[in-house]
Design a protein around this nucleic acid. Structure first.
Length: 270
DNA sequence: GAACCTTTGAAGCAA
DNA sequence: TTGCTTCAAAGGTTC
């Protein structure tokens, strides 16, 4: 429910027509100071992204040029002039994820100091579900409850990359068009469509992903992708590797034939 | 109930 | 620097 609402808002934003200068790039802003990037989670722009982003640097949150890597108290950045839906600056953000509407960037109680009761969608219990049922703590030993407490620490999810943002937006469309439900099949189609996109279209999603990473870094300065490593149990490591050896996907094929990440589907997979 | 499948990209890590 | 691994989403399938 909440998720759908947020997602709808995101879609609305994604398709929000620029009021003036339609199709133009976002308002130029001073480029980010690369030297000031934090030591962790430094946005590694893909060649494709760099190719398209540099001529048209996009707006950066106000404190993005702050000295990063220096510990700052976790707080809600003042992005009102940039991300606020009520600021009247929507026209400047034709392809910009809104701080207030993007699913994984929605502010909530996950952000200290924020009054909203809705938890940050990027923060989820390890189970991935809401913990609704209280349990009898008296039955737990101290060690058990400590371990349980540790295990129940909310997980901060990785920010979505360009393709993931594209998938989120286009999934429903593909489901409707192809009357498919299986995500594996849908993702295959989306993968092909992703490669069929023009570079300009893709650049839009790379830009969104870059903003998402920046906001994620501001929200969780100490967070690292490493934090979530090993949280998913694997049934059989050998089986997983074996499946990776299967050249049935573009990625696998590219890896096998040493093709560039940005190349299209290779012959054997077509 | 939880991992798997399937996609791309970002990030971490070992060599 | 390179190459491999893991995890982000999603929902049906498999274990």
């Amino acid at each position: 429910m909440y998720k759908d609402t947020v997602y709808s808002a995101f879609n609305l934003l994604m398709h929000y027509p620029p009021p003036s200068g339609a199709g133009q790039h976002p308002q130029p802003q001073p480029p980010l100071n690369k030297a000031s990037q934090p030591t962790h989670g430094v946005p590694q722009l893909s060649p494709l992204y760099e190719h398209f982003s540099s001529p048209h640097p996009t707006p950066a949150p106000a404190d993005m040029n702050q000295k990063q890597g220096v510990h700052r108290p976790l707080q809600t950045p003042d992005l009102s002039g940039f991300y606020s839906l009520t600021s009247g600056s929507m026209g400047q953000l034709p392809h910009t994820v809104s701080w207030f509407t993007h699913p994984s960037l929605m502010l909530g109680s996950g952000v200290p100091g924020h009054p909203a009761a809705i938890p940050h969608p990027a923060i989820v219990p390890p189970s991935g579900k809401q913990e609704l049922q209280p349990y009898d703590r008296s039955l737990k030993t101290q060690a058990e409850s400590k371990a349980e407490k540790e295990a129940k620490k909310p997980t901060i999810k990785k920010p979505l990359n360009a393709f993931m943002l594209y998938m989120k937006e286009m999934r429903a469309k593909v489901i409707a068009e192809c009357t498919l439900k299986e995500s594996a099949a849908i993702n295959q189609i989306l993968g092909r469509r992703w490669h069929a996109l023009s570079r300009e279209e893709q650049a839009k999603y790379y830009e969104l992903a870059r903003k998402e990473r920046q906001l994620h870094m501001q929200l969780y300065p100490g967070w690292s992708a490493r934090d979530n490593y090993g949280k998913k149990k694997r049934r059989s490591r050998e089986k997983h590797q074996e499946s990776n050896a299967d050249p049935g996907s573009p990625k696998k094929c590219r890896a096998r034939f040493g093709l560039n990440q940005q190349t299209d589907w290779c012959g054997p997979c077509r």
